[in-house]
Design a protein around this nucleic acid. Structure first.
Lengths: 346, 346
DNA sequence: TTGAAAGCGCTAACAG
DNA sequence: CTGTTAGCGCTTTCAA
């Protein structure tokens, strides 16, 4: 009897009550134009039958699903996981549900996933894009906000950390500690965040009249192993410090430093990017440029939901300031030793 | 009547081609009973118009959405993030998409989220439940698989790591290293995983004729801070080792050990639970009981998809063996120094 | 091989 | 206030 496909529907409730489906719909959706008595009867029965509306059917007619699609590069990366969590909170706070898909930093997967979201008629998409080109995005025909990365030439709303500021802060900090041979472990130059971080690095060097030494620049592939390999390559050129632009690559860099017998920060000062839960658990604690994921997520979702609600106007481009956390891995500065307690600087 | 966003539909394609919607549907879905020529025309036009089927409409008639709901306790926790990632892979490999919701270990949120998934007509649910009771689950009327935790008295399929084995391994390992006063930082006893780990701990002690000393048992709340507090409480009773059952709490425990000036493993040997990316980055590297998330996820999703495809039969209860990784934090054993990972001695 | 028609469960005019 | 009537875009008999 209580079989699965016997779920109560608006129609079945209406029939049992001898009213119309319209009335039931109005009553259940709290529209004022139903008699109190009718509403009560409807609600009572709906309750008793454990009626729940079918969002598919509703969405089919309202053309809105109440779902936001989140495309994340890699949930396995703690930064993205944290970001996804914050996006979910923000999305839910705004009354939407979430459909999630990973791309593994693969543009083809990104295309597939976006198509899927289109088919599922999501109301909007939050995209941590991994693509450099954007031909697909232009004709998406869906509210879209780019989070973290901004492929060139897209006119969608975008929110990101100020990567250039982050790269600049990290590098200037190392310069102030007396380093002149500062290496950078970066990523694919086609990605806006990678480029921003590098530009900040270059700008800080330039400010001190130091030219970028290409031998001190290595691009990894966002994996621990590529971070490790990068470090092994770099060490031949005797950097005294390194700025590692990605959390997974930082893990690899740390491993490499150990394998090579480099003491951090004495032989090699290190600054990493992204918040990691182990930053102050390792020895020495890691100086990091952190992205305020909460703010990023909230801003992105707000922008998106406003668009969904019909906001017009040109694409916004929001930049969030990174948080620079100085710990011991970047060493003591020129003016004397510095405690490895956490501090802040900006 | 020019609509706002005139996406092509089956109907519009049919009209333009002068055929019926049925034909278009059949052609696009690769049914053999359409003439090759007709199919070609249909496909050509569909392609040109960038037609994509509306999954809402399709779902409304087929009664299947192709969506699996994933209810995760906390994406911010790296274990759950990793698990979610693996579940997503498995789900997609089986041809489904994913709708995601977190509960923050809050049973009320779990209820809300499950109701939402019902309304969205997901085909099935993967649930990392946080509830001890299960009244809601019984009448869910939806294929359901429990992952990681198994609330008592549910008859759904379930997959979990063998928590008792994990607790036993960790504790026996410490016993073999000569420890007799072994503390445990556990969690809410109502949760099956927590209970399992504790039971394993108790069993190992019993085997050696050691009674559980209640002063060495502290239940935390799955937060870093509660792990820290637990450690501070425990230290008064002079344990020589501790088994910390949860990754976040392990972080807190580690902090506490430092605050208290305890050297690991000399003053306090430690074993943690769950894989953490920093296990061998900290000093000393952490001995951990790891859950094979990949296997857990794959088994859970396979079970679920089989049910969705109509598999009958009584609920399965799958147990996956934990992986015990010995590193330096648990110290050297009775028979001499042991160099398992980084060759640490104290 | 194709078309007509009947819905899936719901909302939204527009009447009554 | 409430009912009638159309669909939303799709799949699926059942005929032709």
């Amino acid at each position: 009897m209580p079989r699965e496909h016997d779920r109560p529907t608006l129609t079945s409730i209406a029939r049992r009550l001898g009213v119309s489906t319209a009335t039931v719909s109005l009553a259940l959706n709290g529209q004022p134009r139903v008699a109190a008595a009718t509403r009560a009867r409807v609600q009572a029965l709906a309750e008793r039958l454990h009626y729940t509306p079918d969002f598919l059917a509703r969405g089919l007619v309202t053309r809105r699903t109440g779902v936001i699609g989140l495309v994340i590069a890699d949930l396995g990366n703690s930064y993205f996981a944290r970001l996804a969590r914050k996006v979910e909170d923000a999305v839910r706070a705004r009354g939407f549900d979430l459909i999630l898909a990973s791309t593994d930093e693969d543009p083809a997967a990104e295309d597939r996933v976006l198509r899927m979201m289109l088919q599922r008629r999501v109301d909007g998409v939050v995209l941590t894009s991994t693509a450099s080109s954007t031909h697909r995005l232009r004709r998406l025909g869906l509210p879209l906000v780019l989070l973290g990365r901004v492929p060139a030439g897209v006119r969608a709303d975008a929110v990101a950390v100020d990567n250039e500021a982050g790269g600049y802060l990290a590098t200037r900090h190392l310069l102030e500690r007396g380093h002149r041979r500062i290496a950078i472990v970066t990523g694919p130059a086609s990605l806006s965040d990678v480029r921003g971080r590098f530009d900040g690095y270059a700008a800080a060097l330039r400010e001190r009249g130091i030219a970028v030494d290409k031998r001190l620049v290595v691009a990894g592939r966002f994996t621990e192993e590529s971070g490790r390999a990068a470090m092994h390559r770099l060490v031949r050129h005797r950097p005294s410090a390194a700025f590692v632009c990605h959390n997974q690559m930082l893990i690899g860099a740390l491993r490499a430093a150990r394998e090579l017998g480099l003491r951090v920060p004495r032989d090699l000062a290190l600054v990493g990017f992204d918040e990691v839960e182990w930053a102050d658990l390792v020895d020495p604690p890691m100086t990091m440029v952190e992205q305020p994921t909460q703010a990023l997520a909230a801003k992105a979702v707000n922008l998106l939901v406003d668009r969904i609600h019909g906001a017009r106007g040109r694409a916004a481009r929001l930049l969030v300031e990174p948080v620079f956390r100085v710990r011991a891995s970047s060493g003591a500065d020129e003016h004397g030793p510095r405690a490895d307690a956490q501090g802040e600087e900006s």
